[in-house]
Nucleic acid binder design. Structure first.
Lengths: 177, 177
DNA sequence: CACCGAATGATACTTTGTGTCAATAATGCG
DNA sequence: CGCATTATTGACACAAAGTATCATTCGGTG
């Protein structure tokens, strides 16, 4: 039920688990899925792959849609391209501590994220503790369970240090379930 | 870290775990928290307590803001009141399978929900499988973990029956992490 | 009852995202 | 290469969801 593998309980200590795919690799994937390779898509893709941490669609729109050298890219195109990239597993959709959706470059199978509410960094992990719960829930409720949503929020070591240095308590922010 | 108790691993088989508080009880709670008891707040509260399943803020706005007998209630007031009710634990905020936030009347401590993508029913449960994961994540990443978000999506028995009867596959809907 | 500040709600605005559709450009084919 | 076909684009309008402002109103206290 959990699309993330329960086998791998180890966590990657670095914000980006594996090197992101190259633009060319992704383009090949797109073609394989019947999509065309266009200029705007290349531009969106390049921008996306350059992002080390989660970003919102609007951030991308602002970045690509304004007076950049060359042709600005339309809002709709950015949204559509993000959707496509998510559908071919180049991007993961996730929900931030503020409840707003964002995207992050992620390797397939890495479905859950630990998010820093300070700097926005994301650590993806495959360990999924929900499967056992799903069995219990299925037994007790007779629901047909199709999926779940899990995000973990915290503050990364760097931001903890910064907070200490700045005299700002690290306990700010998130109060989620 | 998980505000839901890990002690109670049993699930309540009924959509509403415990009888919702009475309006008067809630009003007392509001006063205790330094809020005033006003007409609009009573109206919002009554509407909220009458809801057996999750609802969105906009639904309430539509319900209370239009040409109902008596004074229609402003959009801002509805949002503000929901915020207050959530802050005093009368309501839980949750995120539906479509990613949109909604509220549900919930008893404190019941922080996670199993949502039916057919009829919208919610089963709240306190079993939280994330605590162990949090320990692992804390050890491996040195994050200071402050919270998490967990929702489980599926189809309730009734909707499964309906789907079978209607010839509609039960496998529609949610494809979440 | 009068006062004070919290609360209200009309309005405008922001953010985030979707729908439409004529113009355009990417691929396949000859 | 040149053309036809069709996906794609992007400007625009629109919608949904929520926030900010602020003069007015109302609840509760003395």
């Amino acid at each position: 039920m959990c699309y993330a593998s329960i086998m791998d309980t180890r966590l990657d200590p670095t914000p980006i688990a594996t090197p992101p795919p190259t633009a060319d690799e992704v383009l090949i994937t797109l073609v394989r899925h019947g999509h065309r390779v266009t200029g705007p898509r290349r531009a969106v893709l390049d921008a996306v792959l350059a992002k080390p941490r989660p970003f919102t669609a609007e951030q991308l729109v602002a970045e690509l849609g304004d007076s950049r050298a060359g042709a600005p890219i339309g809002r709709a195109t950015v949204y559509r391209t993000l959707e496509i990239l998510a559908s071919v597993d180049v991007l993961s959709r996730l929900i931030g501590a503020d409840g707003h959706p964002s995207y992050v470059v992620g390797t397939p199978g890495h479905r859950h994220h630990l998010l820093c509410s300070g700097c926005g960094a994301a650590v993806s992990f495959t360990a999924c503790p929900v499967d056992e719960l799903v069995q219990t829930l299925t037994r007790d409720t007779d629901f047909a369970i199709h999926g779940h949503l899990l995000e973990v929020f915290g503050v990364c070591p760097t931001c903890q240090d910064d907070a200490t240095t700045d005299g700002i308590g690290a306990g700010r922010g998130v109060a989620v379930g």
